[in-house]
Design a binder for these strands. Sequence first.
DNA 1: CCCTTCATGATACCGGTGTACCATATTGGT
DNA 2: ACCAATATGGTACACCGGTATCATGAAGGG
Lengths: 211, 211
Amino acid sequence: MPKRVDHEERRAQIAEALIQVAGRRGLHAVGMRDVAAEAGVSLRLVQYYFETKEKLLFHGLQHLTDRFTARVGARLAAAGPDPGPRATVEALLSASLPTDEESRTFHLLYSSYAILSVTDEALAAQPFIDNPDAAENALTGLLEHAQGAGLADPDADARTEAISLLAMAAAMGTSILVGQRTPESAIAVLHHHLDRIFATAQTPEGGAGPN
Amino acid sequence: MPKRVDHEERRAQIAEALIQVAGRRGLHAVGMRDVAAEAGVSLRLVQYYFETKEKLLFHGLQHLTDRFTARVGARLAAAGPDPGPRATVEALLSASLPTDEESRTFHLLYSSYAILSVTDEALAAQPFIDNPDAAENALTGLLEHAQGAGLADPDADARTEAISLLAMAAAMGTSILVGQRTPESAIAVLHHHLDRIFATAQTPEGGAGPN
DNA sequence: CCCTTCATGATACCGGTGTACCATATTGGT
DNA sequence: ACCAATATGGTACACCGGTATCATGAAGGG
């Protein structure tokens, strides 16, 4: 047999090429030949490792989410060991904003897949609706934990605020993508809400504080 | 000459057909033949009234925003003459959520166009980035007006809240589209924030109230 | 009246795209 | 050492989509 090559590695290389070219020209415009050229392999190779374009696209989505998860993990790790809940939340949210080329590509392609999934049932069956739910649950847990530690407004509804923060980050991310908003303004808006949520009840006078 | 037909009417009919078929099968999947079939005319007719597909797509976007603007206007009119600021804001936000077939189509296609515009400079040059700005300004004005009338928290930053509300409505709209969230839960989240913003400082004692 | 101009129909063409088929070099196992 | 399985290249095929071309019908003006 010839040099036994690592299939998974090659598949990752090709999926990466897909993401790169799709990030540049748009997911709708990417063809198998483009992916092959970007990966520096022949068209036949792309067919060999992914029989069909549909499978290539699915694996591309998988690869994309994997890379993003790793990126978020790195951001969290960079926030230092055992950061406070607010720092953690802030890292989570800001990591999802398209601030550099990689996050820009991620946001664009993830949005593309999401929109595609509305009219493509095969894509809708793909498990990438779990990720938003997981993020929502994780963020809710973080907020509840902060409330328990007395770091966040105990009257806030953790899940509602988690949903709100994620929604704002997502939509403002798209605004950044289309050039309507700057990353700085988006972060400012998020900060505003974090200030609100992480405001501990200061109870100024005796008993008239919020209750 | 033959029966002089109203060009604008025909163009609107064809653009409407584009929106219908694109709403069903996705903007990426629509072809000129599909549009022709949906409109009940021949392929040649579509070419005749829109020379190229690009122009057809542009006009489709225009038609889409026009229809949506009309819909929002109708919603506002349905809220009764001179509704309160909160009712107006609520009508504005809920009108943008995909709750029925028409708003679903609008949200899907507008998002598709937006994503397309990221990698298509011709689309990016199209003036559909003005609409979000206009909405943001209008909503900011409404909130400021409510503040001036003592109906909303005077300490809130009107523009930041306007941006937040629109962002949440947009992102949760997409969540509804992909089946992750229900319209009811989205409305509940929006209500939560409206309750917060439209909470007037209750000024319990005499003179310490906001002024 | 008929000719010009507008509206519409049928169809051909060309480029591109996903997929299938055939060929072949390479190397590990016995 | 040779066989067989693996990896890879080249290419052809069928299809589809946007666009262009040719043709024709319909009516209003001189």
